[in-house]
Nucleic acid binder design. Structure first.
Lengths: 190, 190, 190, 190
DNA sequence: GATGAATGAGTCTTCATTCAT
DNA sequence: GATGAATGAAGACTCATTCAT
């Protein structure tokens, strides 16, 4: 007896991310995913009841995984700016390393695949970031602007920069990272 | 292949934008587009040779249209900050009013529809913005950071904020618009 | 503009009956049905939303069509035996001519296709036959046995005889028809 | 291909009969059969080379089994009517108890599974019944009608009555059994 | 030009069968 | 022998595109 191979779930997810980045959600088929993952078409259906569930589960995983990394090395007793910087750097690194996931998430919004429940859950993952910004505002280090707007500002700028460099086929130098952080921080601070 | 009724072309484009926003590129069919535009399926093929061309032409139009609006009321003799502010406001207004186009463009980027040529052309439309930022850098009002990074910073932040408010089902108040401009400008300025 | 061709519905039904007789419900595919009807696969889906509906509609039609023929030339003022004979002959003729329909109906019972509603409706079609037998019982010409049992007796015997001759590749002679009617009538009469 | 555990073969057959009655031949899969029999999918293939053979073997068994029971308690020296009555009652009892088998046989007849050989063999099982009726005709107790027609009459009527009561969810009372036998016998007798 | 029915290649999904454990 | 995951051919269904009206 061969037990269900939890590894295969990961292989399928990985293959899906790669293909969505390349062709978009509109352009992928189960057969392609299977081939990319080194499996037969039917095998995909052992691990997922259908394409919908495959996409939704991947969506949920991507959302959750990112949230778990954001606060790595974050020390709540350190001064705000230092803590913010840590989290910001984590975010940047994660997004650069996992660009495919960002593309996938983006394509999922406005897709017939993602069900409403999944969307809501994923927003809750922003909460820790939300609290962080609130702290900065309480300490009067951050402008007294609606926190969600501030988060959109931070994440939007970062996403676009990651996207740009990705398509330029390069990485940000350390100097550039500092410069970009400077843009972001100067925008936020009082 | 493009006879008289230029009106129908616009109807089809409009229908496509609405549907892509609702269901994503992955979820739309020619039949749906035709119905939404109040036409028969076959009629779409009188105005577009195929789906590919329909999407590509819409992509090109969206790109161009936006570029044309950016510099409305821009006076090159006015001080830099004033000019930048004018362009920034134009950008913001355009994106809020035509959110569907932003979604469409975004979905197109990783899709099997958009051909390489179209992608390159569209980037050239950024040139005026590019020059504007360069001017700010020359006048030492803007940080000496790679201009493309600065553009990504400006546009990324703005896009995300527009998206956020769109999904919140609201508009930015005048005060919020000023606050957001403040974030952006404080980030950029020396 | 080419309007939906009601003829095609009939073609598809006809093709389905032929194939079910040949291969059973278990052995038919939409592609086969389409080919047999001289259509493309997709065309079948213009007239039926799915295989299920195709089978169910055919089931309903077969049931209804038969009921309409049973009482042809039946004169309620004629003596009972004469009227019964007329109906019995109609039944026999119909079943011999439309053997395929009988096979189809038979296969449909115990199939995943037929939905409960359809089953119930079809039973109501037996009502006229039911009344006829009741009349015979009232006139004390027919044995005082549960009417449904009598109907099952009549129809079961007839069905099997039709089936037998069909597979023998022959028709009943006039003499045989009379003989079989004799079996049936002698069983029923008081 | 048929090793020890004859028990499992029976379990698989039993499971198949139950499922065919419920869903028809068109609706069953090997996986369902295995699950119903409490086995793994692969195990079925230890006892049967393929689905075809599974169905055919079950078909053959059902046919044979029934034939063996028909003449239980039949005394060839008893008067014809008594002997016929014994056989008729055996047939009735068997069909009521094993309704599933009747459904299965019926579904098999127009199916891509049953091979021609199996069909012919099964008809030979009717021979004892055939001889019985011939005896009745020789003794001039039974109408001089083609024997196969008489058999179809007897079995068809009985099948339909069993089916009717089965779907009514009830059994025939002793009185009803006598009444139905009366119908049949009065039809046959001279 | 406009229509929408017709087409059939291409998807998703199922399922008989195989095979590693 | 038993298991159930893996396979891939085949079936249901969709949809871009064509074409008769």
């Amino acid at each position: 007896m061969k037990p269900k191979d939890e590894n295969k779930v990961r292989e399928i997810h990985r293959a899906t991310l790669a293909l969505v980045k390349e062709k978009g959600l509109a352009g992928i088929t189960i057969e392609q995913i299977a081939k990319q993952a080194g499996l037969a078409t039917g095998t995909v259906y052992i691990y997922f009841t259908n394409k919908d569930e495959l996409i939704n589960s991947l969506f949920a995983i991507c959302r959750k995984a990112s949230a778990e990394v954001y606060f790595k090395n974050y020390d709540p007793r350190a001064p705000f700016k230092e803590g913010f910087r840590t989290v910001w750097m984590n975010l940047l690194q994660y997004r650069m390393e996992r660009f495919e996931e960002a593309v996938f998430i983006e394509q999922c919004y406005h897709s017939p695949f993602i069900n409403a429940g999944n969307r809501d859950i994923s927003n809750q993952l922003l909460k820790p970031l939300f609290s962080l910004i609130e702290r900065g505002k309480n300490e009067q280090l951050i402008k007294p602007v609606d926190t969600l707007l501030l988060l959109a500002y931070i994440i939007g700028a970062m996403s676009e920069i990651v996207r740009l460099t990705h398509y330029q086929g390069r990485k940000l130098s350390n100097k550039e990272v500092e410069a970009v952080f400077g843009l972001c921080w100067d925008g936020l601070r009082t």
